[in-house]
Amino acid sequence: MPHPARFLVVLDADSTLIRNEVIELIADEAGRGPEVAAATEAAMRGEVDFATSLRSRVEALTGVPVAAFATVISRIEPTPGVRELIAAVHDRGGVVGVVSGGFHEVLDTVAPALGVDVWRANRLAAADGTLTGVVDGEIVDAAAKAATLTEWAAERGVPLARTIAIGDGANDLKMMAVAGLGVAFNAKPAVRAQADVVVGPVDLAEVVALLP
């Protein structure tokens, strides 16, 4: 069992923990960046079903070599203030989780490097060293994000009232709704409208003041 914690902070990954949308970086490797970026934007605004959109965007990655993840990871930019926020959570006895509609192939390197305690994301199926254009396993969508926050809190003996969810897109709303505090960060209008707190500056250190 994971060790108990005083509180739990769960962040989205793309455009929250990091500045990038990872699927767009991978799509650049396939020469399909603009097409995938437009589809991502529509999904984040909540105009299309996230799972359906993700499947079509991942299909556009067919044939990208798995070796391209090294290039993608080298282009990742952590969001300003992320290290300060994670350090502050740990100093106060909290745990930091990341749950993402993005991909383990990138988060498995990026999350531990930033000090994240636990993370969950989608996996990309590959064969013969190239992506096959499908998601491997169940898709991490809005419902899965909310369920993951609830599960991690239970594992660590943290009441939901002492959880904070931070996100920017429509698929973060369910997670923000179940958390004790839902924080819209660098967020789309629909997300800002439903959040408990809106953080305007793109600086995660701004969230430190909200920690219990």
Rank of each mutant, 00 (worst) to 15 (best):
G200Y: 05
W152E: 13
V82I: 15
V98A: 02
T163R: 11
T132N: 04
M44Q: 03
A42K: 15
N20S: 05
T62M: 03
V72T: 10
L204Q: 11
E41N: 12
R75W: 00
G97M: 03
V178K: 11
A190S: 09
V118N: 05
G182H: 05
L11C: 11
A5P: 06
A177T: 15
D141N: 14
W119V: 08
E35L: 14
V135D: 14
G182Q: 12
A165H: 08
T132L: 02
R83G: 12
A190N: 14
G102I: 02
L107S: 04
V140R: 08
A209L: 04
E35W: 10
E47P: 02
A179R: 02
L54Q: 03
T150S: 15
A38I: 06
T40Y: 09
G94R: 09
T148S: 13
G63P: 11
R123W: 11
V116K: 01
L17E: 00
N171K: 07
H3S: 11
G46W: 06
H3R: 12
V158C: 10
V135Q: 14
L211N: 09
A30V: 11
V110T: 12
F103E: 02
R6V: 06
T148C: 14
F50E: 03
V110R: 01
V140A: 05
L85V: 02
V95T: 15
P189N: 12
D49M: 04
T52N: 08
G200L: 14
A154E: 14
E105V: 01
D128G: 13
V198R: 01
H90Q: 12
R162V: 00
V58R: 10
V96I: 14
V191C: 08
E84P: 01
I73Q: 06
V98W: 11
V48D: 08
F103G: 09
T109M: 00
A193P: 04
L11N: 02
L173Y: 10
A161I: 06
V191M: 06
A161P: 07
P34C: 09
F50D: 05
G81P: 07
R55C: 12
W152T: 07
S15E: 07
D168K: 07
A179F: 10
G200F: 09
A88G: 02
G31P: 10
G94I: 09
D203R: 01
P65G: 08
D28I: 01
D28C: 08
V98D: 03
H104G: 10
V66H: 05
V64K: 01
A30P: 11
L211D: 04
V191E: 12
A195I: 10
V96L: 08
